[in-house]
Structure formats: structure tokens, C-alpha cells
Design a protein around this nucleic acid. Structure first.
Lengths: 210, 210
DNA sequence: GATAAAATCACATAAATATGTTAAAATGAC
DNA sequence: GTCATTTTAACATATTTATGTGATTTTATC
């Protein structure tokens, strides 16, 4: 038996969800609330398998609710419900440990399937949401491939620069003279087309060289 | 009619897939290959709706194949197939524009559903993969929220440091004396708990301060 | 209008960094 | 064995940074 707690401000939708879930074999609604002002206590009290959490609610909204849940319970599966697949909310919800993200227009049969999927360790998402998630990955891309052909030693020295080491510290870390460190760094600057330590560090981060 | 091209080195599995898809209403396999050494030309030639791409193949592997496809065709839906849900491959595939990621053990009925889902703009994933994807988001978290309480001016100065400006350049950029720049930077170092320009720059990137 | 924080500027000095030139070993490829 | 690259190192010098110790002027807040 999969137990569910519902957070949803719209009375009709809340009732509809409750009837759907209670009316299905193997599912049971423990409680439903119209806001998540006391979500932490409520979730601790009922300790459900799954929480259905509307994003847009008066008072504490769904994202805040999610955070509060995660402060007291890392295990309960939380599925976010929303009318629109708003990019920013999706990202924030996933970052804060939501287990899935569904549009409210999801057909009832699918919804039950998704709830079950969540309890089995899945991450159910409406396909339009999943597509957005993929797009977020593709933002990360570019660069990386471009290669400045740093030698092994140069890469090592750059790493130390990034870690905040001074020339002196690098020289003792690598057991080489400080003038050698200078030589390497000069070469690194040439290759990266920069002319200061901080620029090199910035470039290392931007181009994910390390 | 949804047209499919298959890349899969295992003859049994390749045949099985072909029979499954060809035997289903509304689906058709245009071609199947045992490696993707000529994937670019082949995909251009057939111009299918969906490509099923095995990750592990001798010669050009699935990830390389995906990249080659994306060089010539941004539209075709590419679904990656794999035996194991290996974290690194999942990430790389999504980053390179895969539309979905399925385990080979996906039941036939589900597989057809997923293929269709892809053509409709979805991003079908086996639930274990989807779970991994969520975890990747949660890696990003922490920080950001932690606030070093930099003032507006300090933030501005830090931004310029990150952009590789010297003190002199900053002073002329902001129309303030170089000693003022020093003052700001000294304060920034205090707040960030660092004591060099490059450390400040590194921290700005790491903690996404800008 | 008193207070606190932020922004401005000055002077001084030690330390670190950037740049140039040069060159000897060590390493790997052909 | 020669050639190219990498790693090592020294010497010199100008510039930039880091740090300390002030002080004045805005700006926002109560």
C-alpha cells in the first residue's frame, strides 16, 4: 500500500486527487492540506511514502515546502505538481531534492503510474519537463574540447595556482627552484593568452581546464 | 509512421530490435548497422525520425556516434541504449544532445512507447537513469546561498578582478583613485577570507558569487 | 540629527609577480 | 644519433600586489 499526503490549495483539484488515489487499489491518501505552512510537522507525523506538492500555493509555496521537508526527511518521495513547466522552478525543485515533476494535466492513470514509479526509486517527469532538464545539461557544453596543449607539468602548476599557491609554495610543493616555477608559468601564460595569475585562474575555471 | 535507424553491434539484439519495431504498427526500421563508423553519412541518407544508439560498440562508440550525428543533424531524436547505467556516460550523452537514455532491459512495449515519446518532443529515460540525472542536479547545490555580504561596489570590483583587470585598470574604469581600489579589495579579501587576487577570483567561481 | 556602514582617498613599505634573456639536462620520436 | 619538446635553472628589473594606518565624505537607518 502506497501512502500519500497531498498539498494543493485548489479545493476541487485536491478533492479530485484524493478520490482518484483513494479509489485505486494499492494507494491511500493519509491527509491533504491546502497550504504547507506546517509541512515539516505534518510530514513527520504521517510519514507517507509520497508527497504530492503543488508549486503555486498561497503562504509557503511548494518550493519552500520542499526545502522544509528535506530538512526533516531525506527519504520521502516528493513529486512536484504544476500547471506550467516553468524553467526556473523546475531547476530549483530538482536542485532541492524533488523526486519528480509532473504537470497537472497528467492523465489519472499516468499519475498513479508515476507515483508508483517514485516509490520504486524512479524519477517520473512529464515529457515536456524531461526535455527541459535535458536542455539544462546542454547549456553546460562548449569549450572543454578546446585544448591549449598544456604539458603535464604545466597542468600541475596551473592546478596549484588555482588552489591559491604562491610561486614559493609551488616551488617547495614540487621540489623545484622558484625560477623554474616562473618558467612554467610564463609558458602557461603564453599558451592561455593571458598575462596574470588571476587571468589564468579565471580561464582555468571558465574553460574547465582542470 | 515513425522511422528508425539502429546502431548495435550485437547481432542478436540488433535483429530482435528490428523485428520488434518492424512488427509494430506505426513503426519501421529503415536500416541497422553494427558500428557507427559512417554514422554521419548514414543518418543523412536515411534521415530517420529516431536513432537507437548503443553506447558500447567496437570502433566508434555510441558517444562519438552521437557527436557525429549532432554535427550534421540537430533534429533527429537520438536514444542511447546501454546495459549499465554508468554515471559518466549518462552525463556525457545528455550533454551532447541525446534525447533519451534507455537500459537495454527495457520491456518491448515500453521501448516502443519511449520511441514515440521521443518523436513527440519528450525525453524518455529509464527510471534508474532519471534518478541519476536528478542526483547530478543535487551535486550543484550548496554554496550560492551562503552570502559574504559584499557591498554593491565590492561586487563590482570583484567582477572586474575576475575579468582580469589590474588595480590601475579598475581605477580608471570606475573613475576612482587606485588607493580606493586597494581599500575595496582589502575589504573583499577580509570578507572572502583570502589574501590574494587569484584566490579571490577562484572563490568567485567556486561559490558562484557573480 | 546621531549612528553605522559604505565609499572615497593618501602615504608607506615589503612581498609577490611579470617579463626578458639565456642555457643545460632530460625525454621521446623519427 | 639527431631533432623537437619539456623540464630544469639563473639573473636582472620593472610593475603589481598585499598590508598597515590613517582620514574624509556619502548614504542609509533609526
Amino acid at each position: 500500500m502506497i501512502s500519500v499526503v497531498i498539498y494543493e490549495d485548489n479545493p476541487q483539484f485536491r478533492e479530485g486527487l484524493t478520490m482518484l488515489i483513494n479509489g485505486s487499489d494499492g494507494f491511500s491518501v493519509l491527509a491533504s492540506y491546502k497550504n504547507c505552512n506546517n509541512v515539516a510537522e505534518e510530514v513527520e507525523k504521517w510519514s507517507p511514502d509520497v508527497v504530492l506538492m503543488d508549486i503555486n500555493m498561497p503562504g509557503t509555496d511548494g518550493l519552500e515546502g520542499l526545502k522544509k521537508i528535506r530538512e526533516v526527511d531525506a527519504e520521502v518521495k516528493v513529486l512536484m505538481l504544476t500547471v506550467f513547466d516553468d524553467n526556473k522552478n523546475v531547476f530549483e525543485a530538482l536542485r532541492n531534492g524533488a523526486n519528480g515533476y509532473l504537470l497537472k494535466k497528467t492523465p489519472p492513470a499516468k499519475l498513479l503510474e508515476y507515483i508508483q514509479d517514485a516509490t520504486l526509486g524512479g524519477a517520473p517527469m512529464t515529457s515536456s519537463i524531461a526535455t527541459q532538464v535535458l536542455k539544462m545539461f546542454q547549456v553546460i557544453p562548449q569549450t572543454k574540447n578546446q585544448d591549449y596543449c598544456l604539458s603535464e607539468r604545466e597542468t600541475q602548476v596551473l592546478q596549484l595556482l588555482v588552489d591559491g599557491y604562491s610561486y614559493k609554495m609551488i616551488s617547495s610543493e614540487l621540489f623545484i627552484a622558484i625560477d623554474t616555477v616562473r618558467s612554467h608559468i610564463k609558458k602557461i601564460y603564453e599558451k592561455l593568452h593571458v598575462n596574470s595569475k588571476s587571468e589564468a585562474v579565471a580561464k582555468a575555471f571558465k574553460d574547465r581546464l582542470l
